[in-house]
Design a protein around this nucleic acid. Structure first.
Lengths: 224, 224
DNA sequence: TAGATTGTTAATCGATTAACAATC
DNA sequence: TAGATTGTTAATCGATTAACAATC
């Protein structure tokens, strides 16, 4: 048995939730079916690309008709494992952690439910945020093992990130949603999804900077 | 004069801040110079790619020696417009907005400073979050115009996102950091950076799902 | 039937990686 | 000098888009 699992390409994996979210919003009010042309128009994406993406998720459409909306939603939800919510732990109950906890209800639509939060700050431990109790980080390992937690969210400040990551891995966690701006060192078997907020901000400010100082931008024209 | 401004490729723009962040951390304790090999090892990136990225940002190294660390940091900071912080507005002082406000100090390292927050919720308006007063959304337009605000952060719930976006655009905002999971309709001249949190989560849960149900994963082997 | 749409193969595009000469 | 490194051109790889037959 090959240990390497074949994932779909990352760009595809990132578009599938976007399709799903869109489809859930339009509902089946006007028609039971939808075409890639329509989806592409709404989301500003190439219809062929959408067709390929959906095919990779296992969706099937009908020529001339399109895709059955509810069937398509189900298919995407199943593919992403969103039909049943995973129980997940969150470490770092600061502002960002609190924000995520406050979205717990909508996270349910995306296949996860934060059932416990952890922190090392005594003034936060014991508090309840949006119905989730904040526990001491010392309890993470035993609880994660007992509840067989597969996915954890890391929202601690950068200096603590690697240590918390190590704790997660040694507690059997297999996937980490990482909000700290560091490259975490993990075994190959563990999946890390980095949420590089400051990379986005950097991309944005670069673009804005180029827009505001056209002389700068012109330099690029010499290139290539 | 060509209206179209040449931006660097998005992947490059997203890596530059990562280099910058890394370089700031290592400092120049051990050496004044650093090579792409070293950076690549630390960040798990291809050295040639790093060299090309840095060249695009205008950095110059010396054969056999590498790049002068502090010079390189300055170069990247200048390129991204991080030497002087932009004044920015934030709309939507909920939990996510509050989290960003709490990072205001570190955002300064990434070239922005949130100077005012706006909301339509009377119970929030007037409050002060991390030293920033929350104002009524009704004051956005006149204040943005008066202070010549170029960049705004959008952290309102999905249903209000497009309306708030329209307000931003009509107030002269040229770049929007969007945390709502919607494709915003804006004029071509306006830059939108989408922070698709749920797309990341979708990618992550897909991967985890494939990992946990190997039968499912095997299906892919038939493909291609 | 005609036209719209899927599914899939081929072509294009762009980004990453390899190769290598120039350099200190 | 020899070896490490930059800068740059060429090769590879993968993702997007175009083309088109099959279908209802």
């Amino acid at each position: 048995m090959n240990k390497t699992i074949r994932h779909l390409p990352e760009p595809v994996l990132r578009r599938l939730p976007i399709y799903c979210n869109y489809l859930r919003h339009i509902g089946d009010e006007y028609s039971d079916f939808i075409s890639c042309t329509t989806i592409g128009l709404a989301l500003d994406l190439n219809p062929t690309q959408i067709r390929k993406d959906l095919a990779m998720a296992g969706a099937q459409g009908r020529p001339k008709v399109g895709y059955h909306i509810n069937e398509l939603i189900s298919c995407l939800e199943c593919f992403m494992g969103w039909r049943t919510s995973q129980d997940v732990f969150l470490v770092g109950a600061g502002h960002l952690g609190t924000a995520l906890l406050s979205y717990n209800k909508s996270l349910d639509n995306y296949g996860i439910r934060i059932i416990s939060a952890f922190d090392n700050n005594p003034s936060i431990i014991g508090k309840e945020i949006n119905g989730v109790e904040v526990l001491s980080i010392g309890k993470f390992n035993s609880l994660a093992r007992r509840l067989d937690i597969k996915l954890a969210i890391l929202t601690v400040p950068e200096p603590f990130a690697q240590r918390v990551c190590d704790l997660m891995v040694s507690s059997g966690v297999q996937a980490i949603w990482n909000f700290a701006p560091v490259k975490l060192a993990v075994p190959d078997s563990v999946i890390v999804q980095n949420e590089e907020l400051f990379a986005s901000l950097g991309a944005l400010s670069s673009k804005l900077n180029a827009l505001l100082s056209p002389e700068h931008a012109q330099e690029y024209d010499h290139m290539e």
